[in-house]
């Protein structure tokens, strides 16, 4: 058991952002290595699938269609409305990027590209810029900013509401980024902890090993399944929140 702190240290080090080469200057990090692989997988998958679509769907084309249809109808149209289809390329890019990274991170020894704030904050900031740009494009800059305060608010209350709304908007990229990062990071910590348990009790066989090693293996399997669910769910949540923000920006002028 005295090995646990060492193992934990090792695990945390493995999951931290590390440059691939130790020299000075530009270097990819461990997370970026897997992120690039995931991005290439998305590109290959969709470019291949787009060449294979047929009126009667089958194979890879069918899979891609199911994913596209899900994002386009169950996210874009359901959340934003009929005009939501216009924003599908953006929302689809987000969904499949996050999904592929999350899923790839579930296959050892890969790390999820979304398990680092460098990724999640960058994408959350892109979302922030895009949804505000959509609102400004529709209403004009001053009208959009003005729409933060509901019409008919007394003047002495409006500055307070404006401040609250402004803060809530500015917090959005932060919460969006942290939610995805924490889910992916925490999942891998959990997997690492049970792997470490199994490792320690196999190295130092004791009567407790009989119970703890099988339990750790069972937990490892259960958590892998759970992580698959989390991977899909977090991709869905990140995308649907983006859709909600875009929908809110489009409706800003109407209340």
């Amino acid at each position: 058991m005295d090995q646990m702190p060492v193992k934990m240290e090792h695990l945390l080090h493995e999951l931290s952002v590390l440059p691939l080469s130790e020299g000075a200057g530009f270097s990819l990090t461990n997370y970026m290595f897997w992120l690039i692989i995931a991005v290439v997988m998305v590109l290959v998958f969709f470019v291949a699938a787009s060449r294979k679509v047929k009126l009667v769907p089958s194979g890879i084309g069918n899979m891609a269609e199911a994913g596209v249809d899900f994002v386009r109808n169950s996210i874009c149209v359901d959340v934003i409305g009929p005009e939501g289809k216009k924003y599908f390329p953006f929302l689809g890019t987000i969904f499949f990027f996050v999904l592929f990274n999350n899923l790839l991170g579930n296959i050892p020894p890969a790390l999820p590209g979304t398990g680092t704030v460098g990724t999640t904050f960058t994408w959350a900031i892109i979302v922030f810029i895009v949804y505000n740009a959509i609102g400004i494009k529709k209403l004009g800059f001053f009208k959009y900013i003005g729409s933060l305060v509901p019409k008919g608010t007394p003047w002495w209350l409006s500055w307070l509401l404006f401040l609250i709304e402004l803060i809530s908007h500015l917090l959005r990229p932060f919460t969006l980024g942290v939610r995805l990062f924490a889910n992916m990071y925490a999942g891998h910590i959990m997997l690492g902890v049970f792997a470490a348990f199994a490792g320690i009790f196999i190295e130092q066989l004791s009567p407790a090993s009989i119970a703890i090693v099988p339990l750790s293996v069972v937990m490892q399997i259960a958590l892998r399944v759970f992580e698959l669910l989390v991977a899909v769910l977090q991709a869905y949540i990140f995308t649907i929140l983006t859709a909600v923000y875009i929908g809110g920006a489009l409706e800003a002028g109407s209340h």
């Binding site: 270097s27 997370y31 970026m32 704030v117 460098g118 990724t119 960058t122 994408w123 942290v178």
Partner: peptide
């Protein structure tokens, strides 16, 4: 842990 790495941001 929650300060983004600049390289990662550019890659993203």
């Amino acid at each position: 842990l929650i300060i983004p790495n600049t390289t990662e941001m550019w890659v993203n």
